[in-house]
Design a protein around this nucleic acid. Structure first.
Lengths: 193, 193
DNA sequence: TGTAATCCAGAATGATCATTCTGAAAAACA
DNA sequence: TGTTTTTCAGAATGATCATTCTGGATTACA
């Protein structure tokens, strides 16, 4: 009866996610998407909806496969160990080439005016989850007497989240080596907490 | 002989700088500039050149009046005192309403693809100057034995510059109070160096 | 092999953008 | 007051964008 799709939607969405991640919603034109994905314009509309909806699906995929995966050490380990493991995993991820595109969530939130309400909500929820995970680990660390001096867990978790954002931002403007050195420095500071 | 301009170019450039700072090069259309500046389209072209050149002049103005002014404590004071004074001045500046637009240089560097080579050079030079100023102050601090343990001045200066960027970025996504608390936390950490 | 559904390429549409043009209004100075 | 230069408002131009349309090509199944 029906002709089959000549492309795999999941694979195309993954490629589109990498493109949206690097170029941003507004900068990446549909013309570019058609060319770089090798998929017909109209097929993209039929499969993924309009550009906003397409971006939203890419954002969800990014959150699931990149952002949340990075948070795993904070859920699998305890206290200060978990926090250091989180930064170590970040260190490894930032050495990937695609990390030079920064964080898709942060990039998107800086261009909030272009996004749908739905996308903004997803971004906010993800960043809050990051902060919450850090706060929980910090509370454990303090309960275990793992810190040299007491710190307010809420403010400290926001501080640490900011540190992560700073490293991701640095990766967008600088080379791998500089990021590696600064992040090692940061981990050393954290070990001395 | 000639009719006089009905606007003050310096004042208009200042307003344009605030707009470019908040909206970014691409997002801010000439249509918007004409409306919000209250100056005729053609007059803008005659006075400031095309959009790229207009943006470049706004960028220079920002660097002179905002970015470099923030670096003054690092040149006027010595060692650790200078660094803390720098963060304290940052704290004050970030409480201004216009600070919710973040840093024009960082915003621009994240959309590097849209900018002229000239603008990119100005941004790079400014960020390097920030790093250099911090490094000099750190070297003084270490020479004066003001730090509890030794740190590599180059990496530490890059770390501190990243801290500043993180606070500016945070200000774009969060309210004044949260920024204030996290920055106070950061200064307390720095005092314990 | 015929048919029916879906795919696809490129053109068409309408919006927005940066830039330039045109022609009339304004104002400084003689 | 008249001349001359610049200002200014809005239209014109040409590019790019998201989205939709059209008409033929493709392919699964009967």
């Amino acid at each position: 009866m029906a002709r089959t799709k000549s492309f795999d939607p999941a694979q195309v969405l993954h490629q589109a996610m990498l493109l949206f991640w690097r170029e941003g919603f507004r900068q990446l034109s549909l013309e570019n998407l058609v060319q770089k994905l090798g998929v017909n314009r109209y097929s993209l509309y039929q499969t993924f909806g309009n550009k906003q909806e397409f971006f939203q699906q890419a954002l969800v995929l990014y959150t699931d496969t990149v952002f949340n995966r990075l948070l795993l050490p904070l859920q699998e380990q305890q206290g200060k160990t978990a926090i250091v493991a989180y930064f170590r995993l970040l260190q490894r991820q930032l050495q990937n080439d695609q990390a030079s595109a920064g964080c898709m969530l942060l990039n998107a939130s800086l261009n909030a005016g272009q996004l749908s309400e739905e996308s903004l909500n997803l971004i906010k929820a993800s960043l809050r989850r990051q902060e919450e995970s850090l706060k929980k680990a910090l509370q454990q660390a303090m309960a275990n007497n793992e810190l040299n001096r007491p710190r307010d867990p809420l403010t400290a978790s926001r501080f640490l989240a900011s540190q992560v954002h700073a490293m991701v931002l640095l990766r967008q403007n600088a080379g791998k080596k500089r990021v590696h050195d600064v992040l090692e420095f940061m981990i050393a500071e954290l070990e001395a907490w």
